[in-house]
Nucleic acid binder design. Structure first.
Lengths: 167, 167
DNA sequence: TTGGCTCCCACGTAATCCCATGTTAGCCCA
DNA sequence: TGGGCTAACATGGGATTACGTGGGAGCCAA
């Protein structure tokens, strides 16, 4: 699980250190996939082999030759960079990917559950402000209610007391 | 798995370097099949022996002498070029295939999961813009939902926590 | 015999691998 | 609670390997 945010910078050879907590979230693998976010956000989405396997399986279930499948295949598989970390955990992000999200030297690694994102510090500041405003919207907070009930109905989370009287 | 895009050019002898990552995706084989894309896109579709075997098996399941079988057999098997890479990993693409997709010297190798495509840079730029527009269509993104659920229902992806509470 | 094709070898560039160092944060002990 | 120690992490640099590219020799066909 990718959690928290970390800032990193590109060195003279074009390498970037992947934050150590993200490396352990990759489960020991040294392969990283990166592609421009599907929703048009000014960020890169990334993950390890497991995440790519998930997308691969999901896309493979779409009808061959369908518009949806072709669009998603191109957006993810064709645009993705297949990168390998060196021993200390650095990657070299292709210039075109960096340019597509306006990164010159510094960047922010943002944990997003099963994947992570890479932003330019400026773009992330804007995005963070937008999302902070969204969370203050009552509709967003109340959206938690239904899936929370579903979690309880599914048996809750081991080790966590969700319903009074259960402990 | 064919991922990412690479540009290559034809040398004075009509040879083209197959990108190294694609060569390893071919699994060590030096045989490459190429044919014009079935959907009429201005590109060539290609892959190794495994991809051809998949098409062969699929077509073989169609009724013999059926119109569909004959059409697909012609579109793939008859039009395909059966090419062999030299030691450094180059192929010589027949002139008629190049002409059919408007390639003169430069071309783009585009990864598409189990196969790859070859485009002229200009045609690919147009296609990429089309697909980028398609991805911003809510229908395309929402098309991910059903196969995503199916992936989870099928047991998810080993090593990846898809359902909250699984880790 | 000649043209063209294929196979093979050689070179320069660029990426990757590996080692070394400074720094920071966590940990233990006083 | 404070100080010192240790280990992990981020960063820099050098050497090796792989890759892409060009050219030449041998072989087959015309």
């Amino acid at each position: 699980m990718f959690v928290s945010t970390y800032e990193s910078a590109i060195d003279a050879k074009g390498r970037v250190s992947v934050p150590a907590p993200f490396r352990s979230a990759l489960g020991g693998g040294s392969r990283i996939f990166l592609w421009p976010a599907l929703d048009g956000s000014q960020c890169l989405e990334g993950g390890g082999e497991e995440l790519m396997a998930m997308y691969r399986q999901t896309i493979s279930r779409l009808p061959p030759q369908s518009r949806q499948r072709k669009a998603l295949t191109l957006a993810i598989m064709s645009r993705a960079a297949d990168l390998k970390m060196d021993d200390p955990g650095r990657i070299k992000i292709p210039e075109e990917l960096l340019a597509s999200v306006g990164i010159t030297d510094k960047m922010v690694f943002v944990g997003a559950l099963e994947s992570f994102q890479i932003w330019s510090p400026e773009a992330y500041a804007t995005y963070e402000a937008d999302m902070a405003a969204a969370v203050s919207d009552p509709d967003v907070i109340s959206a938690l209610a239904a899936p929370y009930d579903a979690t309880i109905a599914a048996g809750g989370v081991p080790g966590l007391t969700l319903v009074p009287g259960d402990d």
